[in-house]
């Protein structure tokens, strides 16, 4: 099988950059994304949600703007009738149940972590990231430099799913903005 080539390939320089001292922000591209959309109809929302949940080893699907993380993968509620399955393949659905769609190549997945991650992201995202507004397990749609993206706060950091075609342009903006916090590309 031919290897996948990331949108950041050739532009991803691992290492420390920006302000010296403590690392405030760590940027990590999570390669080889596996991402499937699972969509239901209004009357099949619950059974389809359950099927999607089982794919990651959970019993029930998360509610709006919530994510559920298990060892195998995660399930993100991204729209009223849609989830994203992260890290695992989609369950089979009949058309009357819903529809699944492979989006594994459509997004570039960048993880933002570190003690200054929130402050850093708010230089770019017009989004309320305060603890009570966006705790671990939250999912949201927001925009970075005019480009819509999906944001998920996982156990390890803020997971950004950026449209692949814009990814390099946004990556450059992320790196430039992160420098002031003392940063690292992992």
């Amino acid at each position: 099988m031919v290897e996948r080539l990331s949108a950041l390939a050739g532009h991803y320089e691992v290492g420390r950059f920006g302000e010296s001292g403590d690392v405030g922000v760590t940027l990590t591209e999570v390669r080889d994304l596996t991402l499937h959309q699972v969509a239901a109809w209004p009357e099949t929302l619950k059974p389809v949600g359950n099927k999607a949940a089982r794919a990651i080893g959970a019993r029930a699907a998360p509610g709006p703007c919530q994510a559920l993380e298990r060892e195998k993968g995660a399930l993100l509620r991204i729209e009223p009738l849609k989830w994203w399955l992260f890290g695992v393949e989609a369950p089979a659905l009949k058309p009357k149940e819903g529809a699944t769609l492979d989006l594994s190549h459509s997004r570039t997945h960048v993880r933002v972590s570190g003690p200054q991650a929130k402050a850093f992201l708010n230089r770019l995202l017009p989004f309320d990231l305060r603890e009570e507004a966006f705790p671990v397990g939250s999912v949201g749609s927001t925009a970075l430099h005019h480009v819509g993206l999906t944001l998920w706060r996982s156990e390890v950091g803020y997971e950004l799913f950026m449209p692949r075609g814009f990814a390099l342009s946004l990556w450059e903006t992320l790196v430039e903005t992160a420098a002031q916090f003392g940063a690292e590309v992992a």
Binding site: H146, F166, T173, E176, T177
Partner: peptide
């Protein structure tokens, strides 16, 4: 802000850009 130079607008590249 940072919307200057080549980032005046976000650039959209196709996967075979390079």
């Amino acid at each position: 802000g940072r919307s200057v130079g080549s980032h005046f607008r976000p650039l959209r590249r196709t996967p075979m850009h390079d």
